[in-house]
Simulated assay, not measured.
Amino acid sequence: MRNVAHSNPHARVLMRALKFSSGATWHVTQPIPVEQFQWPDLEAGGVTDMGRALLMVAEELKIPPMDPRGLPPVLVLISDGHPTDDVSKGISAIMEQPWGKKAVRIAIGIGHDADHNVLRRFINHPEIQPLQANNAEQLVHYIKWASTAVLQSSSSPAVTDTSTHNGSGLHIPVPAPTNTMPIDSDVW
Results as ranks from 00 to 15, higher is better:
residue 151 L to P: 00
residue 72 P to M: 03
residue 125 H to T: 03
residue 2 R to A: 08
residue 98 P to K: 03
residue 47 V to M: 13
residue 57 V to D: 05
residue 86 D to M: 09
residue 31 P to Q: 07
residue 102 K to C: 11
residue 139 L to P: 07
residue 50 M to E: 10
residue 66 M to Q: 07
residue 101 K to M: 14
residue 26 W to C: 04
residue 104 V to W: 01
residue 81 G to Q: 04
residue 147 S to Q: 08
residue 136 A to H: 10
residue 78 I to K: 07
residue 84 T to D: 13
residue 23 G to H: 05
residue 159 V to I: 05
residue 94 I to S: 08
residue 74 V to H: 00
residue 97 Q to D: 02
residue 101 K to H: 11
residue 168 S to I: 03
residue 185 S to A: 15
residue 88 S to V: 11
residue 178 T to D: 09
residue 77 L to V: 13
residue 180 T to Y: 09
residue 5 A to I: 01
residue 118 V to R: 11
residue 110 I to C: 13
residue 23 G to P: 00
residue 63 I to H: 05
residue 148 T to M: 01
residue 23 G to K: 09
residue 160 T to A: 06
residue 116 H to F: 11
residue 62 K to P: 02
residue 77 L to C: 11
residue 105 R to V: 12
residue 17 A to V: 11
residue 36 Q to I: 06
residue 104 V to M: 10
residue 181 M to F: 07
residue 69 R to P: 01
residue 129 Q to S: 11
residue 52 R to E: 08
residue 57 V to Q: 04
residue 98 P to L: 02
residue 85 D to A: 01
residue 142 Y to E: 04
residue 165 H to Q: 04
residue 1 M to Y: 05
residue 138 Q to T: 10
residue 115 D to A: 09
residue 133 A to M: 09
residue 7 S to Y: 01
residue 173 P to V: 12
residue 99 W to Q: 01
residue 111 G to C: 05
residue 51 G to A: 07
residue 46 G to T: 06
residue 161 D to Y: 03
residue 146 A to R: 04
residue 133 A to P: 08
residue 145 W to N: 05
residue 91 I to T: 14
residue 70 G to Y: 01
residue 173 P to I: 12
residue 62 K to Q: 15
residue 105 R to Q: 11
residue 133 A to D: 06
residue 138 Q to F: 06
residue 26 W to Y: 03
residue 171 H to M: 08
residue 179 N to A: 07
residue 56 M to V: 07
residue 59 E to R: 15
residue 158 A to G: 07
residue 59 E to D: 15
residue 41 D to Q: 11
residue 133 A to W: 09
residue 145 W to Y: 13
residue 25 T to L: 05
residue 22 S to E: 14
residue 40 P to T: 08
residue 93 A to C: 04
residue 90 G to F: 02
residue 13 V to H: 02
